[in-house]
Design a protein around this nucleic acid. Structure first.
Lengths: 150, 150
DNA sequence: CTAAAACACGACAAAGACAGTAGACAAAAC
DNA sequence: GTTTTGTCTACTGTCTTTGTCGTGTTTTAG
């Protein structure tokens, strides 16, 4: 299960991506993003901060400040966002590349049967999710619109 | 990340599966399973109970009691075990078949872009993990042995 | 220059999940 | 009927999740 926080982050990014595609895109305030995405404003602060530190959005301080997307939607990886917001996505700590941790109770990784079987699942899973970007989410709404419009 | 509990469950099942393939298989006590799998005994009680209720193992009470595997390893689904021990495996509650729950804040599932994109990932993921059984774990140890033996 | 509007950051808190532990009970064998 | 084993309920500490609050800092409108 992805966390509520991750859902909020995605909703916020969708709002910002929608804004970015408009003729004259402006930076949106937290207030505005919170309203459009239906997230608690004070919670969204923390989330947007993390997303900004990940280099996906930029913030402008002071009056007439706000947030804006600074990457192309096709360059915003969903799996990277997951890692940023929810932490490691590997099923076992010993399978995570960037958050590797040896399993306390594991005598030998090379022969660990649990590790072995989940490694296979994980690689296949990574193939799928690593190729997913924010653009795929934008596109999927178009598809839904088409269905609804038909 | 799978929980420690799930790891214990898998280790216990591996112990029981190994026992089941021996010439004269016997029911193993919690004590014995705990020792062989490196699990806290009192915690293992809870775990084995859940696994038993899921119909994967059987228990015998009283003196000379214990646990034994009652399914063929090839019939013990890893994903079912995951659902039993760790709960729903869907990334969103609205994507789970057996633990379906409507997302509080979602106005319309049919057009939800988050749901849409995770649904695709999830179906692919299910294809992989639903086909995985305990037998695959047993086999993977043979492969490791071969590599080590070479 | 000052006040207002906005982001930044740390502390705090309630609720739930996770990882066990403990005690009392029930059944079966000897 | 005592011992050995599984069964069941309850409890507990720690960590994570989902926020809220207060206080700062930056920018700009006026």
């Amino acid at each position: 299960m992805i966390t509520q926080k991750m859902k909020y982050a995605l909703k916020a990014l969708l709002v910002l991506a929608d804004e970015a595609t408009r003729p004259k895109p402006e930076a949106l305030t937290i207030e505005e993003i919170a309203k459009r995405s239906g997230t608690p404003k004070r919670f969204l602060e923390h989330i947007l901060l993390e997303v900004r530190n990940a280099g996906v959005i930029a913030s402008i301080r002071g009056r007439s400040g706000g947030y804006s997307l600074i990457k192309k939607p096709s360059d915003v990886s969903i799996s990277e966002l997951l890692r940023t917001i929810d932490g490691p996505i590997a099923p076992l700590p010993c399978l995570s590349r960037r958050a590797y941790q040896r399993c306390e109770d594991c005598a030998d990784e090379a022969t660990c049967r649990i590790r072995k079987v989940f490694a296979e699942v994980f690689w296949s899973y990574l193939l799928i999710i690593d190729s997913l970007t924010l653009e795929d989410m934008l596109r999927s709404s178009e598809a839904a619109d088409q269905v609804l419009g038909a």
